[in-house]
């Protein structure tokens, strides 16, 4: 499994960057338009899926090792929980309180702004990283499992 032809390899190494950029755009505009952390995380994982289909599994494991992906997933989950718990200490003593919501933007009539939603944007970033890293691990585990079973037969 050494990958596909040179044409597929070249094109996919260019397109990978565009897919990652589109995933980041979808994550960060989750509070403005129909996007969100879950869909953007799937885009981030699918860029590495394209790399794995074109170059084979070893190149992807060198580029983003599974231990690094595990660390990213753990830190993203910790960040999401920390955002939830920090609502207890700042603001109104409520879980998930949106304490950095920019009221002056809504008062001035500029609701559609990048930082207008407060903790919603931060939580979207955490969920996007979490879903992207976890789906990457799913794809990697599936391909590992397949290779081992085919070798034993």
């Amino acid at each position: 499994m050494k990958g596909m032809t040179i044409i597929v390899k070249t094109i996919s190494s260019w397109v990978k960057v565009l897919i990652v950029l589109f995933g980041i755009y979808i994550i960060h505009s989750g509070h403005l338009s129909p996007c969100g952390g879950f869909a953007g995380g799937v885009f981030l994982a699918s860029s590495y899926l394209l790399l794995m289909l074109a170059f084979g599994r070893d190149v992807v494991e060198r580029e983003l090792p599974p231990s690094v992906a595990l660390k990213i997933a753990c830190w993203a989950a910790f960040t999401f929980a920390a955002i939830a718990i920090s609502g207890l200490f700042f603001g109104k003593n409520e879980f998930f309180w949106n304490y950095i919501y920019q009221k002056w933007l809504a008062g001035a009539g500029i609701e559609v702004h990048f930082i207008a939603a407060g903790t919603i944007s931060l939580a979207e970033f955490a969920i996007g990283l979490l879903v992207g890293a976890l789906l990457f691990l799913v794809i990697l585990n599936l391909s590992t499992f397949r290779r081992d079973t085919s070798a034993s037969r």
Binding site: G30, G36, Q102
Partner: peptide, 14 residues
């Protein structure tokens, strides 16, 4: 209340 123009996002994350 939340500052999110997307209602779905304001519901699932706030």
């Amino acid at each position: 209340k939340t500052g999110a123009a997307n209602i779905v996002s304001s519901v699932i994350l706030d």
